[in-house]
């Protein structure tokens, strides 16, 4: 893989992740609990993590978060996204690195970590501990969303043609 090919690949995946982020905002699926969502973007991060490695996965996720927040978000939503995205990325990489877990489990842990990160930032920003109930709801929804993404991701990881150094 040349540098250019890498660049193209990162750019394409970041673009796919951004489109998925945007698509997700169009689905007002869960009114009951703010912040509850499927995390379609994590499909890209999970796949990148398994096919390309930890560093590309972090890089793509980071670029996606910054760009989506600039385009569709606010200064506040950037912090929520960063906390969720980086914590879930770190947890997924750590679990994958142990070599003991399937992508499904890694994805579920990532989903939960994402929501825990967002709640932690909310507690810090708003100086309140009164949101423990949301943590419970988001913990459970994180498991469910992580499972869906994990199943899709496992399927994708298995079926993408294996090429040297990347997935394109």
């Amino acid at each position: 893989m040349t540098k250019t090919k890498h660049l193209v690949e990162y750019g394409m995946l970041a673009a796919v992740a951004m489109v998925l982020s945007y698509l997700e905002t169009l689905i007002p699926a869960f009114f009951a609990v703010p912040g509850m969502k499927l995390g379609l973007t994590n499909l890209v991060v999970l796949t990148a993590l398994y096919r390309m490695g930890a560093r590309p996965a972090i890089a793509i996720n980071f670029v996606r978060i910054i760009l989506t927040s600039m385009l569709f978000g606010t200064a506040v939503s950037l912090w929520y996204s960063l906390a969720g995205g980086l914590l879930s990325g770190a947890v997924m990489i750590a679990l994958k690195q142990t070599g003991k877990f399937q992508p499904l489990t890694v994805s579920i842990a990532g989903g939960v970590a994402h929501n825990v990160g967002q709640i932690a930032v909310a507690m810090l920003l708003m100086q309140t501990t009164a949101i423990a109930w949301y943590l419970l709801a988001l913990w459970v929804s994180g498991i469910a969303a992580g499972a869906v993404i994990g199943l899709l991701g496992s399927w994708l990881i298995d079926r993408l043609p294996k090429t040297e150094g990347g997935m394109a």
């Binding site: 399937q102 499904l104 913990w139 459970v140 498991i143």
Partner: peptide
């Protein structure tokens, strides 16, 4: 995809955690 024992343990642990947390809150 085949789940191994540690996967099942891990996922059950996360679920159990939410139950514990929920009952503590309730």
């Amino acid at each position: 995809m085949k789940l191994k024992k540690q996967d099942t343990f891990f996922i059950c642990g996360l679920l159990a955690g939410s139950l514990l947390f929920g009952s503590a809150l309730a």
